[in-house]
Amino acid sequence: MNNLFFYTIIIVSLFIFLIGVYGVLTRRNAIGILMSIEIMFNAANINLVAFNKFMALEESIGIIFPIFIITIAAAETAVGLALILSIYRKVKSVYVEKMDLLKW
């Protein structure tokens, strides 16, 4: 645990996560938000692989978990892009401030 390299990786993954959160909060483009979310998923993957490398994890769960995360993230993106495409045909825009039919 007292390994400088390990802490570097964890801090890098924290920064990647925060970049993703910043992107979700500031982007107005739905595709841009989707990309930021993917970055956040990757921060979790880096975390898990680092934990697997430097700490004794049960049954290499730190390697297995990211595989599932990558797969699920791909499935989620496929559904998300389909939804964004279907609304693009109606609104002619992927900017979230144009999606303002429903409020309060």
Binding site: L34, I84, V91, L101, L102
Partner: peptide, 13 residues
Amino acid sequence: GEGAVKYFLLGAF
């Protein structure tokens, strides 16, 4: 569609 996109973006986040 709009409800679904909003649900999706927040859900994935």
